[in-house]
Simulated assay, not measured.
Amino acid sequence: MSVVLEPLDPRYAAAQPPLTSAWLRAAIGDVLAGIDAMLPRFTATFPAASARGGRYPAVEKVDWTEGFWTGLLWLAWEVTGDDKYRRAAQGLLDSFEDRLDRQIKVDTHDLGFLYLLSCVNAWKLTGNERARGLALRAAELLYRRFNSSAGVIQAWGDLNDPARQGRMIIDCNLNVPLLFWAADETGNRQWREAARRHLAQASRYLVRDDASTFHTFYLDIHSGQPLRGDTHQGFRDDSCWSRGQAWGMYGFALGFNHTGDAAFTELSRRLSHYFLNRLPDDYVCYWDLIFTPQDHAFRDTSAAAIAVCGLDELLKQLPLSDPLRPAYGNAIGLMMRNLHQHYFAHNEDGLLREGVYNYGRNMGINVPNLWGDFFYFEALVRLSRTWTPYW
C-alpha cells in the first residue's frame, strides 16, 4: 500500500479514564431530552440540515439529510424501547415513499443517507416489508448512477451533464452500503460489484499518498482515466476537509464489513492517523485539517462525531494484540468527553454546537447540524452496548 502510515501522536498513548457506563447513560439521557424537545414539531416534517438561531426550521423532502432525523428516532427506540419513537419514524415512511414516487431530488448518491436511516433500519429492526420495498427502490436508483467505464457512482446531478459526469466524492463511502444491503437481500451481483468497484476507485483516487483525502475526484466516463481532484466543501483543492477525512475513516472500515477486504481496514487506519495527528488541544477538529489554532477557524463537531464512529468500527476489526488499540480507545474517549463537556447544545435544538455545513457557500456555519447530531448519538450507542450499525 503506497499510502503512508504516519506515526501516531504520542499524546494518545497516555492512559485516559474510561467512559464509564454511568457517564454514557447520562450523556444518552441528555440526547434523549434533546430529541424529546424536538419530537412534537417533527412528526410530519423534518428538521432542516442546519439550525438557525438555536432552532431547526421545518422542511419537506428538499435535502440529503432527512434520514438523519429518522435515524435519531430509531436509535432512541433501540435505546429506550419507547414506542413513541418507532411510531414517529414509521409515520414518516409516507414522505420517503412520496419522494420516490414523485422523484423529488433523487438524482443523487445521497440515497444511501436517506434510505439506510429511514427504511433499511426499519426493516432490520421491525421486519417492516413496506420499508424494505422502499429501500430496494432507492437502491435501484442509486445503481443507475454507476458508470461502469469509470467504475464510480456519480455524486449528484443529471447523469448527462458533462460538468458532473464521472464525479465521485468521499461522502459516498457511507452511501454504498445501501447497494451492499440490497445485493444481499436480492442476490443481485451487479449491485454488489458496483459498490465494491466504487470503493476501490475511492481508495485509489480520493486518498492521497500522505493519507489525506480529496473531497471529490473526476474520471473520464468513456476511458476511465483519472482527470483531477478538487473540493466542493474544503478550504482548497489540496487541503483536507475534515468531514471528508472522517467519511473516509468510517466508510473504508465499513467497506471491510461488506467485502472482507482487509486493505480497507488498513486504509481506515492510515486516514485515522492523519486525522488524529492534526487535532487541536481539545481534540475537536477545525472544519479543514489544514488549520491550526493560530488560524482561529471554526470547528466542525460533526466531523469529530463521524470520526469517533469510524475509530470504533476500526477497533472492532483489529486483533486484540494490535499495539495501537489502547491509543485509539484513548482518542475516542478524549473526543467524546470534549464534545459532551464543551460542545453539547443544551437548551436549544440540536445536540452538538459548532458544526459547519459548507463554509465556502456560507451554509450552516458554527451551528448544530442534523448529521452531527446523528453520529454523536450513534457514537454513544456504539460505546454503551453491542450494536449493529445501520450501515
Rank of each mutant, 00 (worst) to 15 (best):
L116T: 10
Q90R: 11
S148E: 15
A27M: 09
D98T: 14
T43S: 01
L111V: 03
P280S: 00
E97N: 08
L32M: 14
M335Y: 00
D158C: 07
Q154T: 14
S242I: 01
N338L: 04
A138R: 08
L174Q: 13
D282R: 05
L141V: 07
D161I: 09
S302A: 11
A200S: 13
R196T: 14
R144C: 14
E78V: 08
P7Y: 04
L267G: 03
P319R: 03
A331I: 12
S268T: 05
C309S: 06
R382W: 11
T386R: 15
R243G: 04
D349G: 05
W391V: 03
E185F: 06
F275S: 03
S223V: 10
P10N: 07
A122C: 08
V59M: 06
H198D: 09
R361G: 08
R145P: 05
D349M: 03
N147V: 11
K61G: 01
A131T: 03
R270W: 04
H340R: 11
D94I: 01
I153A: 02
N366G: 04
D98Y: 11
S239T: 15
N277I: 12
Q245V: 00
D83N: 12
A263D: 12
R269S: 09
I104G: 06
M335W: 00
F235H: 09
S223R: 12
I365V: 15
A303Y: 03
N128S: 06
E378F: 09
V106I: 15
A253K: 00
W371A: 09
L227F: 07
D161F: 12
L114C: 04
G310S: 05
E313C: 11
L111Q: 01
V4Q: 11
F344W: 12
Y286F: 14
A51G: 06
R86F: 04
N330G: 04
D230T: 13
D281A: 15
L383R: 08
L134Q: 00
T213L: 09
A131K: 01
M249R: 01
L314V: 10
Q294D: 15
T126P: 03
S302H: 03
M336Q: 10
P162C: 13
D322A: 03
N147F: 05
D300R: 12
L141R: 12
N347D: 11
D209E: 15
A211W: 03
D63C: 07
S21D: 12
F256L: 05
G71A: 05
P280W: 00
D300N: 10
R361V: 01
I35V: 15
L351I: 15
A37W: 12
V120E: 08
L32C: 07
L380Y: 10
F291T: 06
F146S: 11
Y274E: 05
G157A: 14
L179Y: 03
F377D: 01
A22V: 14
R243E: 06
C240H: 00
F68W: 06
Q90Y: 07
E97T: 07
R99T: 08
H340K: 10
T65K: 08
F375I: 10
H198F: 09
L271C: 11
C285M: 01
W74K: 02
P368I: 11
D171T: 05
N121D: 11
A331Q: 09
A139K: 10
F375Y: 14
D373M: 04
